[in-house]
Design a protein around this nucleic acid. Structure first.
Lengths: 113, 113
DNA sequence: CTTCATGTGTAGCAAGACTACTTGTCTGCC
DNA sequence: GGCAGACAAGTAGTCTTGCTACACATGAAG
C-alpha cells in the first residue's frame, strides 16, 4: 500500500497506537507494522517529524530515558491527545463512510449483494 | 469534512461517479455533494485539475457540447478508467481495513457489537 | 574491526488539494 | 435595460504532509 494515501490520517494512527501505552519512535514503527500485518511500513523520516508535530500540538509528551546506553525518547498520549483521538475517530468514521458510499464499503466486485 | 483528507482518494471518487454515466465538471461536483449527503462539497479548483489529471492518464475522455449556449465539457469513463477504478476499489478496501484496524471500523464508542 | 540492528534526527523534494480569481452565458427581478 | 445570481470552465499560487536520502551514535555479532 502506498503510505502516501495516509495523508492526514497518520496523526490519528499514531495517537491510536500510543493510546495503548507509551512507546518510543522506533517501537511505534514496529507496532504499526505488526498491527497492520506488514501493510504499514513507515520510514523514520515520516514518523519522527509527525511525532514532533503532535508534540508541538500538545497531543503527546516525550521523555528521555537511557536504555542500554541508548537514548530513547518515549512518547505518551496527553489528555488533549486523547480528545484529539476521539475527534479523529469520528472524522475517520465520517470519512470512510462517505468514501465507502462511492467505492463500496467492502464488497469485492463479484460478491453478489 | 475537510476534503483535504481525501488526498489520493479523490481520483477514485471521480471515477466512481463517472462509472454511472458521463457528466460534466459542474454536475460531478453536484453529484458528489448529493450522494455524500452534503459532506463532500468540493471547489472547482479541486475538481477540474483532477479531471485533467485523469484525462492525461487516459482514465476519462472528454467531449465538448454546447447546451443552452453554454459550453459543457462532458467526461466519460474509459476502459482503462474502469480498470483503474477496480484497482482503486481494492486499494480503498485495503486502506480502510488497515486504518480501521487502528481507529475502529465504524462502531461508534458506545454501540455494542 | 567491520557490519548490522537499534535508535534518533534533518534537509530537501514531490504530490495533491485548497483559496482566490477570471471569464462568459443565461435567467429572474426591479 | 441593468444587476444579481446560478451555471460552467479554468488558472496561478500556496500549503500541508509524507517520502527519500542522508547523518550520527551505540551495542552485539562475526
Amino acid at each position: 500500500m502506498k503510505a502516501q494515501a495516509l495523508h492526514g490520517h497518520l496523526d490519528a494512527l499514531l495517537l491510536a497506537v500510543l493510546e495503548q501505552g507509551a512507546l518510543h519512535g522506533y517501537a511505534i514503527i514496529e507496532a504499526l507494522r505488526a498491527r497492520s500485518g506488514g501493510t504499514l511500513d513507515l520510514p523514520t523520516g515520516t514518523i519522527y517529524p509527525a511525532l514532533r508535530r503532535l508534540e508541538r500540538a500538545g497531543y503527546v509528551a516525550s521523555s528521555w530515558s537511557t536504555v542500554n546506553g541508548r537514548e530513547r525518547r518515549t512518547y505518551q498520549l496527553t489528555e488533549a491527545g486523547g480528545r484529539a483521538l476521539a475527534g479523529e475517530r469520528a472524522g475517520w468514521r465520517e470519512f470512510s463512510a462517505t468514501v465507502g458510499r462511492f467505492l463500496g464499503p467492502g464488497e469485492p466486485p463479484g460478491a453478489p449483494a
